[in-house]
Write a protein that binds this DNA or RNA. Structure first.
Lengths: 343, 343
DNA sequence: CCAATTACTGCATACGTATGCTACATTGGA
DNA sequence: TCCAATGTAGCATACGTATGCAGTAATTGG
């Protein structure tokens, strides 16, 4: 036998000899109920195994406690890490993540589904179509945070790391360690993240009267990154260092260099990339990389969302999280640097 | 200016000169509306930018079109892959995934939150506390699928691959290729998956009058797996092959063997594991592994869930998806095998 | 001990959609 | 021409909770 009639607040009210309102207030933090009444109600609720119905609450209070997260794919470990941490933090505040996978040209479809669930907030982490989606959500009065990409004109908030700074740091570090022919493997060209990283690198090189030695596009994907590596290392005078726009691509680049082109790292080529995904620390790669602090980004996202939700008002702001270099073993160090790092 | 008053079906009805029921029926597949009325309504809806309210629909129809997914962590690429594929498939059927991270002893908390959202179904992919959660959901009349773990007594469905078969295949493959001292690095001992894989391996070895040469527990975690590898390779006569209960652990084992213990793979040791995570194909590992077909498992999960939802009835069944060996380069092949594989 | 607050409580209604039922219109068959 | 059957439309209500309002009980201050 199964419980076929779900227990409602009315059942609890009856059992406790109070009104339905009292039950509701008991389960609403901050509402006015006397301790005695609350105790009676809690007891009755426990006895009946009552669980408040979040859907009904949403309808009447206009707060779903659901945050939508729009993704395009999860094969790069960066986003799973984000989903994991973000979901946990939100859960502690009584919110939950609902996933929407979107890409290509089904924006309208995605939008309809997004808007249907009366979301309290939206996190956009999908590579494409962000700006249209953001605009429509804001129109519908839903706070939006663009995660790891910046808002081009939309009234949406954004959380990014300081990618320009990161690019600069990567470039300077390579220069300091005596590299001269520095190549760049780009992510998707339409992503702000890629643009900023490349701009920072270019600036660092310019300060030393250099420019990007060779360049190819990897689109944040493994196969494209491998092709990019081949292209960049074809011909004479190959680069002595490569900056790669994401760890995920860097793994492909390193694999290609080692197993296809027979180079050693960092003996023949140095590699620096971005993200500091867990695998970057694995002995097989020991990747020197620009750290995006997922924790800081997640907590910024949470704050941005919750503040707007509580204030019942959309206030867009852009949070830029600082980034730093994590030195491992994929860059050949100059003797001077080695001493410095040792001390 | 923002739209502060959301458009409801009543607004659309008024605009189209029909009743609210007609609007509702227009957006309910299979309901009876004449083409003429439907056309008027669609037009009015488009003009007003009407989007049906899924929450209100849930309250009145008792179908939320939300599937809960309970996870413990996403650092092993297997689960992100599952989340990605499952979410897409469900989305095509009009359902969406809501994430719940749970572990340790907050079962009651997790349960309250799960039950609050009137989920149409639940997928349990969390390592611990599955069986309690499953039971309570079924009690609440919610179909449950235990993903990649089997139901011990609960009236929940399950989808697993044929792990015993997989263990057997792994063992036989190593034996055929002349390995004699075969070690096993286990996942969490309380997981059915681990038990079955180990049982299959043991059976294969027994058929050759052998038994597991050495054994240690890796708990499906990287650090524990590395320790396990150290333990197993300490002392004389080290194993000539290791079966590892997951790819994720196998990467740690291989890293430890190569970079800490100075062994080559498959020269000194062969490695076989389970899952066939994307990274297993990367040149740095070239892992020979037992494939769990995520696609097959996802589609089985979807069917199990949707069938029960449509039937308004819980019917638990267990789906066991076949698995197969993916041969790459982490196992030393006997000369005979090499010829076979070449042909 | 009384008046003025304050602290609770219950009543009634709203949230937006789905759906059983009734009523009406249309069609086809005899 | 009339009746039965079928196809549509609208009415009314239910879903479970939150909350403004009004009323009552408890508390405080003088």
């Amino acid at each position: 036998m199964r419980d076929n009639k779900p227990i409602t607040s009315i059942d609890v009210a009856r059992a406790a000899g109070v009104s339905q309102s009292a039950v509701s207030r008991t389960f609403t933090p901050g509402a006015a109920v006397s301790d005695k009444t609350r105790a009676k109600i809690i007891e009755a609720a426990k006895a009946l195994k009552y669980r408040p119905n979040a859907i009904a609450r949403t309808l009447s209070s206009n707060r779903s406690h659901i945050i939508g997260m729009v993704l395009s794919q999860l094969d790069n470990l960066f986003y799973p890490t984000v989903v994991d941490k973000l979901s946990r933090v939100l859960q502690q505040h009584g919110f939950h993540l609902m996933l929407f996978f979107a890409e290509g040209r089904d924006v309208d479809n995605a939008l309809t589904q997004l808007l249907a669930y009366q979301l309290d907030g939206v996190v956009l982490a999908s590579t494409t179509l962000s700006s249209r989606l953001a605009k429509e959500c804001v129109n519908a009065n839903i706070p939006v945070v663009m995660f790891n990409r910046s808002a081009d004109g939309a009234q949406a908030s954004s959380v990014t790391s300081n990618n320009r700074e990161g690019g600069r740091i990567a470039g300077e570090f390579l220069l300091e360690n005596g590299h001269q022919r520095i190549a760049y493997i780009a992510g998707r060209e339409d992503s702000s993240t890629n643009r900023d990283r490349e701009a920072g690198l270019t600036a660092a090189l310019a300060a030393a009267n250099l420019s990007i030695y060779r360049r190819a596009v990897g689109n944040y994907e493994r196969e494209d990154a491998a092709s990019a590596a081949r292209a960049i290392f074809a011909g004479k005078k190959p680069p002595d260092a490569v900056v790669v726009a994401s760890d995920h691509m860097a793994f492909a680049v390193i694999d290609t260099l080692r197993f296809e082109l027979g180079r050693t790292i960092p003996g023949d080529v140095s590699v620096v990339s971005f993200d500091n995904v867990p695998q970057a620390a694995w002995p097989a790669y020991e990747l020197t990389t620009i750290v995006q602090s997922v924790d800081a980004m997640v907590s910024a996202t949470t704050n941005l969302l919750l503040d707007q939700i509580n204030a019942h008002e959309i206030v867009s702001s852009d949070v830029v999280v600082g980034c730093k270099l994590m030195v491992r073993k994929s860059v050949r160090l100059s003797p001077a640097q080695k001493v410095m790092l040792k001390s």
